[in-house]
Design a protein around this nucleic acid. Structure first.
Length: 291
DNA sequence: TTCCAGGGGTAGA
DNA sequence: TCTACCCATGGA
């Protein structure tokens, strides 16, 4: 089945997909030639389907599902993945008035590809910490291969595991199979607390949290420090935190013509106030080799 | 062998 | 609050 999903006038499918590396992490499969984003997805009723997104027109996406499904459920997932409910008017107005940022509204940048659940975003962010992008992809692939549910007609293609699927095995077994290094306990603990009803992770995005509180809640998660929490704030539509990573240091280092500290990276984006995190994300077009 | 990658947790000051 | 050190993993 398929249907059309309207998008805001300041939305760009390609720019959202390109905003960061998520499109390269399974179960996302990005086909640049056809400009199509596909994903094996486990539905609420447990069925595993293939979801495919492409641009139908500047005003709508075509959403295709491999078998009949609840359109409202699918639409909600797509809306989350592409931040379709995020308002960019203020951010774009801010950027349009600054020559070094005016490419952002011109290119309709500002949204980032997300996973259908905050759970998956948190796990993937943890998998990016203190490792290479190659290893992040490998760890994520192992997680899916060992714990995700197969797509019926192509069993090697699997959905991202649910918290329940990870919590179902012991921390030892999980560590041995997923090989996440010292990140394994953090991921397993998160899965366990969610499964046991001790922690409502998804609730962090539906409740009316003020940003300082949300920041503290994210930092309280095991395995989530300033870098990871800053990434997650961006995914939650809060653009005020700069996720200082090696790319940020390289970028600011080029601007200043010398190696820089994290503090200098923060200072560089400080003038952009509550938009500094989002400004950093789209400050200069990313040309990372493996994305 | 040693270093380190899209850092985080902890102890000690 | 700040610093030093360790942390699994695997590629360079």
């Amino acid at each position: 089945m398929n249907f059309l999903l309207p998008v805001p006038s300041d939305f760009s499918f390609l720019e959202t997909i390109d905003a960061h590396g998520w499109r390269a992490l399974l179960p996302f499969v990005w086909n640049a030639e056809s400009a199509t984003l596909a994903r094996i997805e486990r539905l609420n009723d447990g069925r595993v389907v293939r979801l495919t997104l492409c641009e139908e027109s500047p005003h709508a996406l075509r959403v295709t599902i491999s078998e009949p499904a609840d359109e409202a459920e699918i639409a909600a997932r797509v809306r989350r993945m592409l931040q379709l409910d995020l308002s960019l008017a203020d951010f774009h107005a801010y950027c349009a008035a600054r020559s070094e940022l005016d490419h952002i509204p011109a290119r309709r940048q500002g949204r980032l590809l997300r996973c259908p659940t905050l759970w998956e975003d948190v796990v993937k962010v943890i998998l990016t910490t203190n490792t290479t992008w190659t290893q992040t992809k490998a760890m994520n692939a192992r997680l899916i291969a060992h714990f995700g549910t197969s797509y019926p007609t192509e069993p090697d293609q699997r959905a991202f595991p649910t918290p329940q699927q990870i919590a179902a095995v012991s921390p030892e077994v999980f560590a041995e199979k997923a090989k996440l290094g010292y990140r394994a306990p953090a991921v397993h603990h998160l899965a366990t607390t969610i499964t046991q009803g001790e922690f409502d992770l998804e609730g962090l995005q539906t409740a009316e949290w003020d940003s300082p509180t949300l920041w503290k809640r994210l930092l309280a998660l095991r395995g989530v420090g300033p870098y990871a929490a800053s990434c997650l704030m961006l995914y939650l539509g809060r653009g005020e935190r700069v996720n200082v990573d090696s790319w940020a240091r390289t970028l600011v280092g080029k601007e200043l013509g010398r190696p820089v500290t994290d503090a200098e990276v923060h200072a560089f984006f400080e003038p952009y106030g509550t938009w500094r995190g989002l400004v950093y994300t789209f400050y200069a077009w990313r040309a990372s080799p493996d994305e």
